[in-house]
Design a protein around this nucleic acid. Structure first.
Lengths: 107, 107
DNA sequence: ATTTATTATCGTAATATTGCAATATGTAAA
DNA sequence: TTTACATATTGCAATATTACGATAATAAAT
């Protein structure tokens, strides 16, 4: 059906899956890696760097923003996207907590 | 188009995204959590526990197996699925490496 | 005000994913 | 060797995701 039955899972399960899902595309991995290597990030650089159309990059940025991983500031006529370090650490901790809890219980 | 252009990314970017993607569904998160809480895991238990059809659970298990996160042993007429701890730790380390590298470079 | 440059949004086509019923396969018991 | 049970596979329908061209929106420069 293509429709995930979110209502049968806990909020925590849905949240964890959502984190993983947003990171689960190579373009978004590449965007995060590229941003982390720049002084300041500009969307048009990403278009050349990654090799997707501008509309597509903009869409991927939107998803990363929706998770709070990126924050964008207007800088003249450009956008400066940066990783939100607080959120980044928060999500890393939540994912590690999932990994650690799961493995500590396992048979 | 629905078609991810894998060839424009590095192998590492594709691998990372693949790990995230497989974990990016609440049913698969729930399956891993449930297995970790049992002495031994049986597929039919999952069907009742999670509330998806047997075919659907089997499909999700297949994806987790494809990543090497689960290993299944035949036990009588049932299957005993367990988390592969070596692979589990391996993937956790790779994801942490991604998180740490990215944040250490960031502006 | 017009032009130019940058990013966001909309509409659309193509592929992927999710979920299930039906069926096949495999295994143990009767 | 049937029967019963457990899991895997297949086929299909519905929704989601990916990607891009076209276009809108925004902001600086001319």
């Amino acid at each position: 059906m293509g429709l995930t039955k979110s209502q049968i899972y806990t909020d925590r399960q849905n949240d964890l899956a959502q984190f993983f899902k947003v990171l689960g595309h190579p373009a978004r991995v590449a965007i995060l890696q590229y941003i982390s290597q720049q002084e300041a990030c500009i969307c048009n650089d990403l278009v050349e760097e990654i090799g997707l159309a501008q509309a597509t990059i903009s869409q991927h940025l939107k998803e990363l923003k929706s998770l709070g991983l990126l924050k964008g500031e207007i800088e003249g006529k450009r956008m400066c996207y940066c990783i939100d370090m607080v959120r980044w650490n928060d999500i890393q901790n939540q994912l590690n907590s999932f990994f650690n809890t799961t493995k500590s219980n396992c048979c």
